[in-house]
Simulated scan of single mutants.
Amino acid sequence: MLNLLMKIVRTGRVTEHHDSGTTIPPRFRGKVAWKDSQCRSCEICREACPTGAIAFSNGQLVVDNNACIFCGRCSEVCEHNALGHTAEYQLAVLRDHLSEKIKATLKRSLHIRHVDAGSCNACDWEMTALNNPVYDLQQYGIDFVASPRHADMIMVTGVVTRNLTQALTMTYEAVPAPKLVMAVGACAASGKVFGNSYAIRGAADTIVPVDIYVPGCPPRPAALIYGLLLALDRLGGNHK
């Protein structure tokens, strides 16, 4: 026991705080940046995008972050170096007119029920990391619960499959009102990653009303924490 205590003292704090900055790996791909001055509107990037996340409107490039899987294909095929990935991962967005619902829901600690609606498990692994000593989600008063009847929020991962549509619907109905729903990752946020299939119903918001979208394939644990804190309105003036 003494050796364990000494090891803890030597190790010190390992938990990251959201406002202290997060170390980004050198090869990390975040939000797509577009250089207007270098773009020739050839639209090769749009054709190369596997999920249709890139579009052009009035000569301006528009990226649907919910559908983007940050694969890097757009920047690879661009001959004019007009596209590139940044290190920005704080891409979570809230649906409009959520303030009153959030105030009514989140007067206390936030309890979450996870629903895998048909994911590849990549997002699920990132969510699991939220409870490790590095991210330590409980430091924010947020915890996962086993029953939807004890939850304030549902975090949905994966494109919604036909086989799991009923499970998602029943879980949503079991959560006491008012309740929030977060779509985690490009599959749940856009439903475009796997295309059209008889086995797929689509994005999470085609089945249940979604309040928070966290893009990524998969999103980093820090990106998930950003989305949760954005919903909790605990970011002060840091959020965009």
Rank of each mutant, 00 (worst) to 15 (best):
N3D: 13
L4M: 11
L4T: 13
M6W: 06
M6K: 15
K7I: 06
V9N: 06
R10E: 13
T11Y: 03
G12C: 08
G12A: 07
T15E: 12
P26G: 06
R27D: 15
A33V: 15
W34V: 13
K35Q: 13
D36A: 15
D36I: 12
S37A: 15
S37L: 13
R46T: 05
E47S: 06
E47K: 00
F56P: 02
N58K: 11
L61M: 14
N65L: 12
N66S: 10
A67W: 08
G72I: 04
E88Q: 11
V93G: 02
H97F: 11
L110S: 00
L110P: 00
I112K: 01
I112M: 01
R113L: 05
V115G: 06
N121K: 15
N121S: 15
N121H: 15
C123K: 01
E126M: 06
L130C: 02
N131I: 07
N131Q: 12
N132D: 15
D136Q: 07
Y140H: 04
Y140T: 03
I142S: 01
A146R: 11
S147D: 13
R149M: 10
A151S: 09
M153H: 01
V156M: 05
T157V: 14
G158C: 08
V160N: 02
V160I: 13
V160R: 00
R162E: 12
T165D: 12
T169P: 02
M170Q: 14
T171C: 12
T171Y: 02
A174H: 01
V175Y: 09
P178C: 09
V181S: 01
A183P: 10
G185T: 11
A188S: 14
G191N: 11
K192F: 06
V193G: 02
G195M: 06
G195W: 09
A199M: 10
I200L: 14
R201E: 09
G202L: 10
T206N: 10
V210E: 02
D211Q: 04
Y213S: 05
P219M: 08
R220H: 13
R220Q: 14
L224H: 04
L229Q: 09
L230Y: 04
A231F: 01
L232R: 11
L235Y: 05
G237W: 06
G237S: 12
N238F: 10
